[in-house]
């Protein structure tokens, strides 16, 4: 528990200005930290801003407001050489293994690109490193000369993982790394990510809408709704006693693969759709769909408040009634 935070986001905001002149508040004040060697799961439905958080903390987007610090250093305001070092230490694994690999590059070009840019290995060492990386992710060295189209989805995702690992990162953002894969392949990639974490003491931000996988991989989970974190807690706690009405609805919407229990349990079905992040929100963003909304929820936005050790909830109902 006393491990220092490797990456921290503080009141991170990312707004996009649309052509119409309106502002889309993709991320609107998100704070979290991840301890070295741990995994934070970021869950939520499409459009809730989880991928934008991942991209912003890697410096791919400049935040509108707030700060990101990596190993204690502020990310925006780093010197050129510090920033270059960070692009090596912070890496990303993408969702779609089909569109995230250049079809005209061979596997060894793809995996070796980062090694060359950062000048980590040259000549024979470079080839040796690529061999090592491929075997680390469960591919063979013969694969090095092939092109992405010669591989299946699961194998491509392994190439994407080898590319991220090539530059010896300490922190990896996994943006829905398994959702484009078939069920029987998903578990292979999950097990690979977990064994790599153990072996290389990696820190992950694991972005997903699949709460089952997140529970399995992550020590801690943060639930996002419309650009804000509505609840965060250690994994077991969040799944055993979700407190925010949105988290509860989300959990009950995921079908359990057991017909008897699935039919017996209570389902909270949310009405309507997620509102647009373009609209101005004054109160709680979930108020319009919340089964327990109070008049106050429409007027004032709740803050994340600790409800028990390490368990934070942003909900007037929970925070005021305990």
């Amino acid at each position: 528990m006393t491990e220092p935070m490797i990456i921290e986001a503080e009141n991170l905001k990312k707004h996009f200005r649309l052509a119409s002149g309106a502002t889309l508040k993709a991320v609107d004040g998100v704070s979290f930290g991840i301890e070295r060697g741990h995994t934070l799961g970021l869950v939520g439905e499409s459009g809730c801003g989880k991928s934008t958080v991942g991209r912003t903390i890697l410096g791919m987007y400049e935040p509108t407001d707030g700060a990101v610090s990596f190993e204690g250093k502020k990310l925006f305001g780093m010197t050129r050489s510090e920033k270059r070092a960070f692009t090596r230490l912070g890496q990303m694994i993408f969702q779609d293994p089909y569109s995230s690999l250049d079809p005209r590059m061979t596997v060894s070009d793809i995996v070796g690109e980062g090694i060359d840019i950062h000048g980590i290995y040259k000549g024979k060492d470079r080839a040796e490193r690529i061999r090592e990386l491929l075997s680390l992710v469960g591919l063979a060295f013969e694969h090095a000369g092939r092109f992405p189209h010669e591989f299946s989805g699961g194998q491509r995702q392994r190439i994407g993982i080898a590319r991220a690992l090539a530059v010896e990162p300490s922190f990896i953002v996994c943006d829905e790394p398994i959702s484009a894969l078939d069920v029987s392949i998903q578990s292979q990639i999950v097990n690979l990510l977990m064994s790599l974490q153990e072996r290389l003491s990696l820190t992950y931000l694991f972005i997903s809408h699949d709460l089952g996988t997140v529970k399995y991989i992550c020590e801690r989970v943060a639930v996002m709704y419309l650009g804000v974190i509505v609840e965060t807690a250690p994994s077991d706690k969040l799944y055993d006693e979700p407190r925010h009405p949105y988290t509860r609805a989300l959990m009950s919407a995921i079908p359990i693969a057991d017909p008897v229990r699935e039919r017996a349990r209570e389902h909270v079905i949310l009405e309507g759709d997620v509102p647009s992040p373009i609209d101005e929100n004054i109160g709680c963003r979930f108020a319009g769909r919340c089964p327990r909304a109070l008049p106050k929820c429409e007027e004032e936005s709740p803050e994340l408040v600790a409800s028990s050790d390490g368990h934070y909830v942003a909900c007037w109902n929970v925070n005021e009634r305990g």
């Binding site: 029987s184 578990s187 077991d236 799944y239």
Partner: peptide, 20 residues
């Protein structure tokens, strides 16, 4: 194998995930 390979909400963490 299909039933085993999915992480489930109603199971404990750290239970090994079976793969095919």
């Amino acid at each position: 194998a299909l039933l085993n390979s999915r992480p489930r909400l109603d199971r404990d963490r750290k239970q090994k995930l079976a793969t095919i």
